[in-house]
Design a binder for these strands. Structure first.
Lengths: 108, 108
DNA sequence: CTAGTATTTGGCCATTTAGCCAAGTACGCA
DNA sequence: TGCGTACTTGGCTAAATGGCCAAATACTAG
């Protein structure tokens, strides 16, 4: 028995997690966490990919509600929209640490 | 300039997030959060898929260090290995709530 | 208006993912 | 030993993802 609400709740959460689940996007988030507001052109250097690729990563984050953007002149500035990411990553890190402690081979 | 350690750190985090980023796996985690220890056969009912599918979802979670398993007789019992998931999902929920507040269309 | 910069989007390809069925493995019981 | 149950793995297909290049859009400066 699964309600429609349940289904949507799980899909929504999954979508947000999926948006976070990529090394380049995590790197973008780290950058935005330290710099407050950054334009796409500066973010390309951070992950070292084509600007079109960066733009697509950013729109995934935006679509999930993790970042927001604002246009100034011909540049678009992105910034974090969510404040709790630090605690989220603390949790992720605790998984990592727990794995390290048990010498679990990651990235296999 | 990206160090090898940085790369690995981001990839490791991404792997854990990716393991979480699927509705069925989130449902499995919820179940394990309430029941402590559940066998694969009971988990098939939770997400309503083939047992082989469930088994693959579980091995992804295990590979990321989120769950662990123990065999008793012919049954394999899975349980959560991570305690902080509640705060992680609280963060995810705050993104959801923030999105709802601004009537952002999700799942588009 | 024209050229140039910043960004997004369309199109394409290679890779990964999710799902199912079927076959393989492991264990318990007769 | 041989059958049945629990689970995992191999093999396949359809769909999604990530990357690049090239074209489209938006804006500025001249």
């Amino acid at each position: 028995m699964e309600s429609r609400e349940d289904r949507i709740r799980y899909e929504t959460r999954a979508k947000i997690l999926k948006a976070l689940a990529h090394p380049s996007r995590l790197k973008l988030i780290d950058k935005l966490a330290e710099e407050e507001e950054v334009c796409v052109c500066d973010l390309t250097e951070v992950i070292g990919s084509d600007m079109s690729t960066v733009s697509r990563h950013l729109s995934q984050l935006k679509n999930a509600g993790i970042v927001e953007s604002e246009k100034h002149g011909q540049m678009v500035f992105y910034r974090l929209r969510v404040k709790c990411l630090k605690s989220l990553f603390r949790c992720i890190e605790s998984v990592v640490q727990c794995n390290v402690d048990e010498s679990l081979v990651m990235l296999s």
